[in-house]
Design a protein around this nucleic acid. Structure first.
Lengths: 209, 209
DNA sequence: ACAAAGAATGAACCATGATTCACTACTTGT
DNA sequence: ACAAGTAGTGAATCATGGTTCATTCTTTGT
């Protein structure tokens, strides 16, 4: 008898898997899921295409995992930003700002997570993601209504509007075919974030900033 | 000498072309551009696949034309709704409502026009479309600022927010993988439209409805 | 050093779907 | 009726890109 899987081997495999995940996310950040080719991912990861299939059942499964990991990160950040000291409006303002800033830092990623059409297994993950956001914002809106700093309204729909306004405003203008915004114009970006967040908060509260 | 293209022939060709366009739009309304197969379009139109290529240079060109025609229709409708009697806020309210209602009536169409990733030639058309909307809303917002019914703000960015909020709020919830909303719930739809439009108007004006 | 077991490889395979083109069928002017 | 020219056809071709699998390389226990 011979080869038995050893700890060292397990680790090496885990590292390889992790590496594939990271390279894939790089690809996605570059052109979305659709254009992330297995061959390219394998190339970046420095392995053969077949190797990908030793670690993941299929392309779709790989993507689903990537998606899950990435969205978890995003949702956590927003939850964190929603957890600062202050009233509901201030906390929402903070969270929206964080959301917008993160999306702007990686517009392609944001697009892939929010709007890119994806295969069923990935779409399933997206549903979870949407729900996670919706719940976070919805709860904050309810808090605000209870505190009296937000007028009574349908918190669920309002939270959808929030996500919609912010994500499209960011993803739309900054999606794939966009070359006319010179990079490094933080000025522009700051104004964009401000305008969007103001719009959202006003939409919610009905009061001028 | 013989065959010279005659009026009758020209008409027949035009009719065939028109038919292809309409069948294609049907396909798009069903599953977006990506899933609109040439073979299916040809089948619906009752012609051979090769025939499509007698009328259009390529699939992409066909799609670009479809897109152009469809968006023209949409933009015209919104322009019209923006042209009613009333102050800027009322006119915007009316236009937003029209936009939302039309999108809800054909969620897949709306998604295809607004958010579906498309090939370059089609994306180019979409840019025109976005600009057309942006200009319409932007002008109305400027009017409102001049009239004093909308506070001073960056009209261009605000118009983007409007389109963003409304389109994502509609397209997101109603995009492809959506089966949990029983059809015919006009109640739901009305509330959705109301909430979104209220949100947009408040976002713009900062006043409670 | 050797054999057993798994890991890695990447060229071959396969599915999908757009596009082509040799051919047929139709229109038209004489 | 015929010839010239055009429209229509759809099976064959081509391109893309995910997936497989026979083979080679590594690791491990004796």
């Amino acid at each position: 008898m011979a080869y038995r899987e050893t700890e060292k081997m397990r680790e090496r495999k885990a590292r390889a898997r992790q590496n594939i995940i990271e390279r894939t996310w790089e690809c996605v950040a570059e052109g979305g899921f659709r254009s992330a080719r297995i061959t390219r991912i394998a190339g970046l990861a420095g392995v053969a295409t077949g190797t990908i299939y030793r670690h993941f059942e299929s392309r779709e499964d790989l993507f689903a995992e990537i998606f899950r990991l990435a969205t978890q990160r995003e949702v956590d950040k927003v939850a964190e930003a929603l957890n600062v000291y202050g009233n509901a409006v201030e906390r929402l303002d903070n969270a929206l700002r964080k959301f917008a800033q993160r999306a702007l830092k990686g517009p392609m990623k944001a697009w892939a997570l929010i709007a890119e059409p994806v295969d069923p297994k990935v779409e399933e993950e997206r549903l979870v993601y949407r729900k996670a956001y919706a719940s976070l914002f919805e709860q904050a809106i309810r808090d605000g209504i209870a505190e009296g700093c937000i007028p009574d309204q349908n918190a669920r729909l309002a939270s959808t509007c929030l996500v919609g306004a912010i994500s499209e405003s960011l993803v739309g203008p900054l999606s794939p075919t966009q070359t006319d915004i010179p990079p490094g114009q933080d000025n522009n970006e700051d104004e964009l974030v401000n305008t969007i967040v103001c719009f959202c908060i006003r939409g919610l509260t009905g009061t001028r900033s």
